[in-house]
């Protein structure tokens, strides 16, 4: 593998299950040291893409190279250099916290002495040292996820794959996971993350692709995507119980774009305060007005499409 060649390179990559096309010809290149994100709603094809990259699901079409190797022919050699943190914590409830690491390390053929030392270091890293000898089952969701991340690092992988690393965690637990992942990034570990949380993608990813129906609908750095597909600011208008259809007609021309969600109307504008003032001028009386910076969430809504009103 030559210098500068992407660690992961997919061209026209396809995954089919019978007639269903889960991944429909995606092009992806992940460079060393990068944190790369797959963003998309449930069923967008993120997890199928991850499983192909993890060499546990053979591609149905296109080409895929990981670490310069072919996933079908060199699966075990590639997997030896990957760390995988699956969507569902698949920890072993019959084992203790530290055994979850030591038993897993043996699957990589690591010598026992190294395993013991590394397991201790990793528990320190994910702040679970005190729980080393406890059973896994009573751990909190956040602890289990951290243990799963530690397990993914036991072979000192070149690439770590994280499938929705913070789904189902409370905010504190989530921030702790983010902080640990950021540390990993500082150490130069390449990470591939799937998420449907916009804040997570903004926090963690250097670059990301937005997927919908198995295709990539946008690609870029989080800030670029926001600039390209949203406006600088967004005004959120709520109108209590009044039907939003009647309100939205009167908002025509305010801001650059309008979007109606079940409970509120979003006004995309370069200057949120000006747009909010215009709403007042039209004698509309929202129950609440919130002016905020636009986020990946807005990009996501724009690209993966709820009913858009231009």
């Amino acid at each position: 593998m030559s210098e500068g060649e992407p660690l992961i390179e997919a061209r026209r990559l396809v995954k089919r299950f019978g007639d269903f096309v889960a991944v429909d010809g995606i092009d992806v290149a992940v460079r060393a040291g990068e944190v790369f994100g797959f963003l998309g709603p449930n069923g967008a094809g993120k997890s199928s893409a991850m499983r192909m990259i993890g060499c546990i699901s053979p591609p149905s079409g296109g080409s895929l190279r990981i670490l310069g190797l072919d996933p079908v022919a060199d699966g075990p050699a590639i997997r030896a250099r990957l760390g995988v943190c699956p969507q569902r914590d698949s920890l072993d409830d019959d084992l203790t916290v530290i055994e979850n690491l030591t038993v897993y390390a043996r699957y990589f053929g690591l010598p026992r002495k190294i395993v013991r030392q590394r397991a201790a270091e990793l528990l320190e890293f994910v702040r679970l040292s005190e729980r080393a000898l406890d059973r896994v089952e009573p751990l909190s969701g956040g602890m289990k996820r951290r243990l799963t991340i530690a397990r993914a690092l036991v072979n000192e992988p070149d690439i770590v794959l994280l499938d929705e690393p913070t789904t189902g965690l409370d905010p504190q637990a989530r921030h702790l996971v983010w902080e640990r992942l950021f540390r990993l990034k500082q150490r130069g570990v390449t990470q591939v993350i799937t998420t449907h949380y916009m804040d997570e993608a903004e926090q963690l990813c250097d670059r990301l692709v937005v997927m919908d129906h198995g295709r990539i609908v946008a690609e870029g750095a989080p800030r670029d995507l926001i600039e390209r597909f949203s406006t600088r600011e967004v005004v959120e208008l709520r109108f209590g119980d009044s039907p939003l259809e009647s309100v939205i007609a009167k908002l025509d021309g305010v801001g650059q774009r309008l979007e109606r969600l079940p409970d509120r109307i979003l006004v995309y504008a370069e200057d949120g305060d000006t747009a909010a003032a215009e709403v007042q001028r039209r004698r509309l009386v929202p129950t609440s007005v919130l002016v905020r910076r636009s986020s990946l969430e807005d990009v996501f809504l724009h690209l993966t499409g709820r009913t858009l009103v231009d």
């Binding site: 997997r79 699956p86 698949s90 699957y107």
Partner: peptide, 14 residues
């Protein structure tokens, strides 16, 4: 039920 092997196949173990 335990889905024990889901994490094992992610390693070099076939």
């Amino acid at each position: 039920y335990m889905r024990l092997y889901d994490s094992v196949i992610a390693t070099p173990v076939a």
